[in-house]
């Protein structure tokens, strides 16, 4: 009886592996296909799309086209700057507001929390007409700051929501001790609380980063100029212009994917831990 049950479990587990492996292959296959074909000659791309490049079919012409024609280093820098600056602002302002909301009791506290939470559910994109007018009147169109401000506003609601959950777990004894020692409220926040919620900040950073880095809508509308194009928009435009040059398209795609893949392999543990936080087992 016991043996047959164990065997049944073994079979079930094997089945689970087969299904999971299938899904994993489906998830990875398209990206792998782009990466290997970006390294091949045009002929090989069409004749043997599923084969790895060999010494005969290896050809980096796509990459040289991209690097010569496109402003990719600039786009990359723009994306990096916009994402980085937005993240800093989201984390700083978000943590400060979360601290105020979870630490102090004041009139309208709950209402303020609800007001900030509104933005979690309502996409900022719907205010585009108003945002564009605002950016035009303040002369911020085609600057990095237009994007940074929009992304900060977009990221704050979720950041405040997640961070205030964590803030309330910080022991109040510690904060009282700090107050007795004469620390100001600012030093309590910056020196006692912030270091303790670093893991939560990492979670928020990862969550906020993905949609900012990948956004196409706001760069297209607020900052389409050559000097402010982000990598996402730049790749989109490039692919449109070079639609018949398969080597160049595949190389552009590969260049857009590689930084994400590197970051993901480095931070996948934090990311997954953040997503599954709460389930500490």
């Amino acid at each position: 009886m016991a043996i047959s049950r164990a065997r049944r479990n073994r079979i079930a587990e094997l089945g689970a592996h087969v299904i999971l492996l299938t899904f994993a292959v489906i998830a990875l296959f398209p990206v792998l296909l782009i990466l290997i074909n970006s390294l091949k000659t045009k002929k090989a791309i069409f004749r043997q799309p599923l084969e790895f490049p060999t010494s005969e079919t290896l050809d980096l012409v796509g990459y040289s086209t991209v690097l010569q024609q496109g402003n990719f280093p600039l786009y990359f820098w723009n994306s990096l700057f916009v994402t980085g600056a937005s993240l800093c602002l989201i984390l700083l302002f978000g943590a400060m507001a979360a601290f105020a909301l979870s630490e102090y009791r004041f009139r309208g506290n709950r209402l303020m929390g609800l007001y900030m939470a509104l933005g979690i559910m309502i996409p900022i994109r719907l205010g585009t007409v108003g945002i564009l007018r605002l950016m035009v009147t303040t002369d911020l169109v085609n600057t990095h700051w237009a994007l940074i401000l929009v992304y900060t506003a977009q990221g704050l609601p979720l950041a405040i929501f997640i961070l205030s959950e964590f803030m309330s777990t910080v022991s109040s004894d510690l904060k009282s001790a700090g107050r007795i020692d004469g620390l100001s409220e600012y030093s309590i926040f910056f020196r006692l609380v912030l270091p303790l919620i670093r893991p939560a900040m990492a979670t928020v950073a990862v969550f906020s980063m993905i949609p900012i880095w990948n956004d196409l809508w706001f760069p297209l509308i607020l900052a389409p100029a050559e000097h402010t194009k982000t990598l996402t928009l730049g790749a989109q435009v490039f692919v449109g212009q070079y639609s018949n040059n398969w080597n160049a398209i595949l190389a552009a795609m590969a260049l857009a994917v590689i930084p994400v893949l590197i970051l993901y392999t480095l931070f996948s543990r934090q990311l997954i831990r953040g997503l599954t936080s709460g389930a500490v087992k």
Binding site: A24, A27, I210, N214, L216, T232, V239, A256, Y264, L271
Partner: peptide, 15 residues
């Protein structure tokens, strides 16, 4: 498996 299946979520729509 988790890392592989989650990967596409990180890609930009353009890609």
């Amino acid at each position: 498996y988790r890392i592989a299946i989650f990967m596409p979520t990180l890609l930009s729509f353009v890609v």
